[in-house]
Design a protein around this nucleic acid. Structure first.
Lengths: 228, 228
DNA sequence: ATAAATACTTTGAATATTCAAAATTAGGAG
DNA sequence: CTCCTAATTTTGAATATTCAAAGTATTTAT
């Protein structure tokens, strides 16, 4: 059944597409997936292994999974269907925005590519859904959009290398001095040495500098991007 | 899971609703159901017994099944969703009529009552789908329509094929001879060539026979059912 | 570096849906 | 009334999806 796109597979693909964006490695852990899918971790592990065999997903044991090319294609199409449906339900049928997401969630599974095409034409190819979420019509549009979006330091991962992109709330001069001293102004490259979520801190090190700690709270003020 | 309306249950209900109309007893055989569902008779028997336990269906072993009140309610709603979707796809999205049925078949399963309500309002409550099939909004409308439309020869429709089910008032031997001569005894198949309600007549033709006229009055003595 | 906590994987079992093939039954032919 | 045929029902097995609980591995804290 390697080519059958079941409703279940679709749900997995869509969640992985979104969650992978929040992770510099591009991988989604089994725990995270289980939480989002509202299933047990064991179930998710089993299913992911099957989907991997069918070529939808790539899986690294004890690490997580990401979408294959084939999986990406399908996942982006689902997001396209979802957002176009939201647009239709809200602007054409004038449904309450609170119900729109849930309804689109159901309908997207049965909306064929053909109906999608006609619906898009009828709606005159809107660029955004009613909540200003862009409607991506292919992977390139999707990837391009997310390439430009950034994460903050608190989401950085151990052993990965990043570049400082921007500092939020630049008024705080104490905080600024701390950044200058540790060579962490926009443009600087650094690596994550260690991190403790329960402890609420992260330790990073810029080139030719000593390691330095930040609270995850203050890390939210530092916008970063993964270094190639 | 007695209350969960799965896609599978929906498929069974919809087919039973339609097929039951073609049978004067109101029951659908396991064989017929299996054929329409494109499943084996064994599968259908098993499922029908389960659905009976859950209160959707009434089942008589070795005879067949029909819908319970609860099943009828759900089935008519599904037909409502199906036809309204056909209307939408064809008149609003301007899809090709050949694709419309298949697409509605899929979407109807995920169209909630809420969206149905808004869609109906948007379409301004059409009375028929694009192929002149009435859109029933509740069981009464459905039953009423079928009670009047598919019982005796006078209600038969042009170009449709029927089977003679029973002759009322079998004493009239002249009438009986007329039927024998034209091969219109119970079991015979015939097609309606033409019909005039103002003229008060209907013209039908059995296989390998010449066309023959009946007054709508005498047609009331011939009980028929739609073929297939 | 070792113990404790956390995350992940495996295993065994349950439910829903399906089929093929064997067993049963009803209705018609002789 | 008995036998045959066709329809129906039963049985045993398969697939997909899921969970709980037990077993492993990794990470964090001491």
């Amino acid at each position: 059944m390697s080519d059958t796109i079941t409703k279940t597979l679709q749900d997995y693909l869509k969640i992985i597409l979104i969650e992978a964006q929040f992770n510099p490695s591009g991988y989604v852990s089994m725990g995270k997936l289980a939480q989002k899918m509202e299933l047990t971790a064991g179930t998710v592990t089993t299913m992911i292994k099957r989907f991997t065999k069918d070529g939808w997903i790539e899986y690294k044991p004890r690490v997580g999974c990401c979408l294959s090319e084939k999986g990406n294609l399908e996942a982006v199409k689902l997001l396209y269907k979802h957002r176009l449906l939201e647009y239709f339900l809200e602007t054409t049928l004038k449904m309450d925005w609170q119900e729109v997401h849930r309804e689109a969630e159901h309908l997207e599974h049965e909306l064929s590519d053909k109906v999608l095409e006609y619906l898009d034409k009828f709606l005159n190819y809107p660029k955004e859904d009613p909540h200003h979420q862009p409607i991506f019509r292919n992977i390139e549009e999707f990837k391009n959009y997310y390439r430009q979006s950034f994460n903050t330091l608190d989401t950085a991962e151990k052993n990965h290398t990043y570049v400082v992109e921007k500092i939020i709330n630049n008024e705080d001069s104490e905080f600024r001095k701390y950044l200058i001293k540790n060579n962490l102004l926009p443009g600087s490259t650094f690596i994550v040495i260690s991190k403790s979520i329960p402890g609420g801190w992260i330790e990073v090190k810029a080139l030719n500098n000593k390691p330095v700690h930040f609270s995850l709270q203050s890390g939210k003020k530092i916008i970063i991007r993964l270094k190639e």
